[in-house]
């Protein structure tokens, strides 16, 4: 397991591994660039109403299907809407779907994982068996099954994508819990009669967090990609929402005529997902340098 989580066993020395982690992370040039890009993107999403030069959904039939220009940096679509503005507003949707779904998945998964690892026996076998089953499925199929029940729409996409993050986090949290369960301070807490619930929340949960954070970043990339795919096939965000996958689907009929309709949304998805994946790789390497050689 990671050096960070083993070091947190030593109560009172938790600062040192954090500083060490930070020092190693600062050396990851690629991950730092990715982090910078993501901070910019999050800023753009938060301040979209002030940054975006045009209304993302207001049609402008005078300026239909125009190529990139000084007025419209990324051109306009079939309704004359400014694509650059739509991409900035779309960042809100994609980032919100990514963060919310992975947060939901992480809460569910870490909770299940800690309970499974802590109590062991049949609870453990049951939880892990279900996780194995879910892990064997490609995320998109699970998501489509959930959409089939809840109906299409961006809110339902969040739930649909959250579900396949659950087993990943459950496994991760269970592994750490099994280790920490043996720790002296957990034994001590139990000996003085601390309730199980408190032990899990206060003594085990913090130990699982370093790994959870690394996977959080990587799962956001996957989740954004899956959500965009769902919107692309018409099961996610519905028009006139400026969701990137839906924009790609809208623009495909104009390929060869107006390529900027598919170029910019595609680039937005790619760069965002790449950013989260590179950040995740960097966090992982900083957390556990041993993994680097692989």
């Amino acid at each position: 397991m990671s050096t960070l989580s083993t070091n947190t066993d030593m109560v009172g020395k938790t600062r040192k591994p954090l500083a060490e982690f930070w020092r190693r992370f600062m050396r990851q040039k690629v991950a730092l660039v990715a982090l910078g890009f993501l901070i910019l993107l999050i800023g753009a999403a938060v301040f979209a109403p002030w940054i975006a030069p045009y209304d993302p959904t207001q049609p402008d039939y005078v300026n239909v299907l125009q190529g990139p220009s000084a007025q419209h940096w990324a051109g306009t679509d079939t309704y004359g809407r400014d694509i650059f503005s739509r991409i900035i507003w779309g960042a809100r949707i994609s980032l919100a779907v990514g963060f919310l779904s992975v947060t939901l998945g992480a809460i569910g998964g870490v909770g299940l994982g800690i309970i499974a690892g802590f109590y062991g026996r049949w609870i453990d076998s049951l939880v892990m068996r279900v996780c194995d089953l879910l892990l064997a499925f490609p995320g998109i199929l699970l998501a489509i099954a959930v959409i089939a029940i809840l109906g299409p729409g961006i809110t339902n996409v969040i739930y649909a994508v959250a579900i396949f993050s659950v087993p990943v986090f459950a496994r991760l949290a269970r592994g750490t819990t099994l280790q920490l369960k043996q720790a002296v301070y957990v034994d001590a807490a139990r000996a003085v009669g601390v309730a199980d619930r408190v032990i899990m929340l206060r003594h085990i949960l913090p130990g699982t967090l370093p790994n959870v954070i690394v996977y959080f970043s990587m799962r956001i990339g996957t989740s954004i990609l899956t959500a965009a795919a769902l919107s692309f096939i018409g099961l996610g965000a519905q028009p006139p929402s400026p969701e990137w996958g839906a924009m790609l689907a809208d623009g495909r009929t104009y390929m060869g005529v107006a390529d900027h309709l598919t170029l910019f949304p595609g680039l937005a998805i790619f760069l965002t997902v790449l950013g989260f994946n590179l950040l995740g790789d960097g966090l992982r390497d900083a957390l556990d340098p041993k993994l680097r050689s692989h």
Binding site: M255, G266, F270
Partner: peptide, 23 residues
């Protein structure tokens, strides 16, 4: 490799169609 993992496959499909079919 990391680009391949991050690349939206549906966009790749559209780019290929654009190049090899449309153009």
């Amino acid at each position: 490799a990391v680009s391949g993992i991050s690349f939206p496959p549906f966009w790749l499909g559209l780019l290929l169609i654009n190049l090899f079919s449309v153009r």
